[in-house]
Nucleic acid binder design. Structure first.
Lengths: 150, 150
DNA sequence: GCAAATCCTACCATTTGGGTAGGAATAAGT
DNA sequence: ACTTATTCCTACCCAAATGGTAGGATTTGC
């Protein structure tokens, strides 16, 4: 995968809802305004999140969207997986087990499988809450120059 | 990144050269035949590898290509970086330090930076030799069901 | 019934991916 | 010197994905 704007904006929307969704419903217009993104484009993205069961919606006046779970119960992996379709770094790695005909003898396949594994592990371990809390240690790990190394 | 055929085929070519390049030069026709890939397409890919200093070439009859270093001295990261341009998982992470104008306040940026970090670390640690030796433990790590867990 | 919101369908321009085609330059062997 | 096998170079091309926009239908609160 290269995570496209679709996935990135989806995450941005989820983070905005986690931050600003306290009680009621949050309108997409508000989110778009805060995040300075096209509301029309966000519309198509949030629709995927909604159909995927990531949030609740309410139509009509004073309507909008809200999360159905606590931020800590959303992994980044599931959000991106829903909007991007797949997070595999190469086409050789398919979600449905469909695979290349050369797979059996391909010497580079273990590399791609390993890469896919570490990506999924990393993204599954981080939650919406980590992002709104700014948990740099968990996100950046050894690459965090502000985290103590202890 | 999603690693495209360009990067994957580049790696395939390098692996083929590492395996079959014993003494002399290996022609692209031989590589294409062995790997069952379009020679014309490989031509454009190997040209990038050549200009990037990853191998030596010899024109004319009995010409071809050969590696300039030992397989253990090629990291997968440098091979893919050369052919793909970037391995960053999102456009927010640029190679030249150019970045999004919202970067300073973006709460998701540490996530992308962290993801980029683990990908680079993984690919930098694996070499051509690991691939030709089939070092599953190193490539698959905990995802390797044939490796003992000790 | 009006206003504010989501929902739905269609369209579209640009970039990227994944190649193909044709020929020029070079080098080895005879 | 000629032939043949090879790399090198430039140009082109089609399909799919990316990153949106447009317009209207539907629902709900007041």
């Amino acid at each position: 995968m290269m995570v496209s704007t679709k996935g990135r904006y989806a995450l941005t929307v989820m983070v905005d809802l986690a931050r600003n969704g306290g009680e009621g419903f949050v309108s997409l217009a508000d989110i778009a305004e805060r995040q300075q993104l096209s509301m029309k484009y966000l519309e198509s993205i949030i629709s995927v999140l909604n159909k995927g069961g990531m949030l609740q919606s309410l139509r009509g006046k004073n309507g909008g969207y809200r999360l159905t779970r606590k931020p800590a119960d959303y992994s980044i992996n599931e959000i991106l997986l829903l909007t991007e379709g797949t997070l595999a770094p190469v086409n050789c790695i398919m979600q449905d087990g469909i695979h290349c005909e050369k797979a059996a003898t391909c010497s580079t396949l273990p590399l791609w499988a390993g890469l896919d594994g570490i990506i999924e592990k990393y993204l599954s371990n981080i939650t919406l809450e980590d992002i709104i809390e700014g948990n740099r240690r968990k996100m950046l790990g050894e690459y965090c120059d502000q985290c103590e190394s202890s």
